[in-house]
Write a protein that binds this DNA or RNA. Sequence first.
DNA 1: CAAAACGGAATGAACATTCATTCCGAAACA
DNA 2: TGTTTCGGAATGAATGTTCATTCCGTTTTG
Lengths: 189, 189
Amino acid sequence: MSETKREIILEAALVLFVERGFDGTTVPMISEKAGVGAGTIYRYFENKEALVNTLFQESVGEFLETLQDGYPRTSEDLREQFRHIAKQTIRYSKKNLNALLFLDSHTNGHYLDEASRAAYMKLRTFLFEFIEQGQKKKVIRPLPADALIAIVDGAYIALNKCIMAGEIEETPELLAGVEEACWDAIRIH
Amino acid sequence: MSETKREIILEAALVLFVERGFDGTTVPMISEKAGVGAGTIYRYFENKEALVNTLFQESVGEFLETLQDGYPRTSEDLREQFRHIAKQTIRYSKKNLNALLFLDSHTNGHYLDEASRAAYMKLRTFLFEFIEQGQKKKVIRPLPADALIAIVDGAYIALNKCIMAGEIEETPELLAGVEEACWDAIRIH
DNA sequence: CAAAACGGAATGAACATTCATTCCGAAACA
DNA sequence: TGTTTCGGAATGAATGTTCATTCCGTTTTG
């Protein structure tokens, strides 16, 4: 039951951090949105920074797990691996879109601690390995991995924002189209 | 001379906003980096929000001007128009990389006023028109314009960060490669 | 020397955090 | 079973700090 309260606080903070950023969110805002007293937050988290770092590490961890779950690691087919990454990114966005948006907008925060940076590095390494393997096999363009990842990342974040804003409807064709656009961006033709 | 001091303040604020975000940057930080007294900032800007909005509007304006400068508006060749956009984006990043990074990270700020949002809308409209024209001609994929723009945007922002961090050297081949990757992402094959 | 520009200490508001107190369900008791 | 005691969870007013902004004595300018 007390686990529940902790989660209520985390969820409220997540939403506010996505909307206003870490520095733009006050502890009273979080306590109000969570429907708890301000002091209660400090029963679960040492301070505001510990709260954001917990959120960051849990989000990275869950996202990376989702990506790795069922990943065809030993496959020689880069396209198949890419399809998996795209599919699981969509899956995670459905499970916890705010966490994905939060990750995207807080990766460079000055408040992230060593553990958060390390967790993020693991995610980054996973994606880098995919890119580098593809480059070694001359399937993926010899461009900076950062830039290639940013292309895909940007596409999926923007896509989700469009869907969330109701500007567009999510259909299998749309998802397939975005996946293909991204694949065409990173692969050698 | 007073114009110069105003610009020193704007430049210092720009760098800090890129590094730490608007809410994470304090006025004393800005005054120290600018080498002026805290009070001096208020001789040039009504308050911190006016400062960030000035910066935002000036950056959007300059960037849009750069994009429109020499734009082959009447051309039927979408590829040529895209090349121009890509080239001018690079040009602007060389002139004022921080402004580009600032724009990228502050477009959703809760502190932006009506004028800033309107200015940003103009930039967005310019890019949307390019996308929509291309979609009408069946040259560009029928995906959400937001997502397509985010792909290109993400690529160039990440590219510049790599170059800035010294992880990679800027060469004509690199720029051509990124441009082609982005074009392949948005065009119909 | 008058006027404008400047710096940085002073101010009050808003913030993160603390802590004395309340609340509540469970256990002990009768 | 009805009553009392207990302990930890929860609270929000109080605290000290940090911030944006103001104010005024000093410096620069013309």
